[in-house]
């Protein structure tokens, strides 16, 4: 039989599609291997999450994680290239959950500021369990300075978030041009919110709510002014 299987190479971040001729026994074996791999990956994430919370992110080593998982350190690296990638994967999963919550919560009648606020607030709520160590994780995973060694999981988070922002903007009549100044401004504001939130000592991080509101207002004011300018130029 012809069997298509798609797998994700965590090291290169590439998707491969293999087309091979295999027997039924081989298919069953492969399925078991795949499932075992999936389970291992889940286990590593679960153990890492526990250790990060208990020992702190900085104090936890990849050796601690692999030992707690009962696997060799080398095996761990087959799944996650580094501790940063591992933590960033946890963050990415939480953000994904947050975005799903945003989709569930939105009514479609929100103003642009309100909808962007809802997206970011929903993400942050899902990220709460990771707040204690999100600072160093984001610093290594989403650094604005490093271009060469971008963490694939960090880059995925950025792309997924910006894709949602683009669809929100689109629904409100704005086109998002990649690498444009407003996009850079948005991303800076967003990273600023994350940084502020990770250090927010107020109860339930209420100060961050004011920060999100103010940042989204700033962004929308900027792009609205751009639009008005363009419209004015068009009219002339």
């Amino acid at each position: 039989m012809i069997f298509f299987h798609i797998f994700f190479d965590f090291i290169s971040g590439q998707h491969y599609v293999n087309v091979t001729k295999v027997t039924l026994t081989q298919v069953t074996l492969m399925r078991i291997t795949q499932e075992a791999k999936k389970e291992n990956r889940k286990k590593i994430l679960r153990v890492a999450e526990k250790l990060f919370t208990r020992k702190g992110y900085e104090q936890t080593t990849t050796r601690d994680i692999s030992e707690s998982c009962g696997m060799a350190k080398g095996t761990l690296f087959n799944y996650f290239k580094s501790k940063e990638t591992l933590a960033m994967t946890l963050v990415a999963q939480a953000m994904d959950k947050g975005r799903k919550n945003y989709l569930r919560r939105k009514s479609g009648r929100e103003s642009l500021v309100e909808e962007l606020f809802l997206l970011v607030a929903s993400e942050l709520r899902a990220l709460r369990p990771y707040r204690d160590y999100i600072g160093p994780v984001l610093e290594s995973g989403m650094s604005v300075f490093s271009k060469k060694s971008i963490c694939p999981a960090g880059e995925e988070v950025r792309l997924a978030h910006m894709e949602t922002v683009a669809s929100i903007l689109d629904a409100h009549g704005f086109e998002m041009v990649p690498n444009s100044i407003p996009v850079t401004l948005y991303w800076s504001l967003y990273l600023g919110i994350l940084a502020f939130w990770s250090n927010d000592t107020s109860e339930n991080q209420v100060e961050t709510l004011a920060m999100i509101d103010y940042s989204m207002q700033t962004f929308v004011n900027t792009i609205s002014a751009n639009l008005q300018l363009r419209e004015a130029a068009g009219n002339e």
């Binding site: 919560r105 929100e110 500021v113 309100e114 809802l118 209420v206 709510l209 509101d213």
Partner: peptide, 12 residues
């Protein structure tokens, strides 16, 4: 706005 109110409700 209402999105902000919802967050206050969830927290409180």
């Amino acid at each position: 706005h209402y999105s902000l109110i919802r967050e206050v409700f969830l927290d409180e």
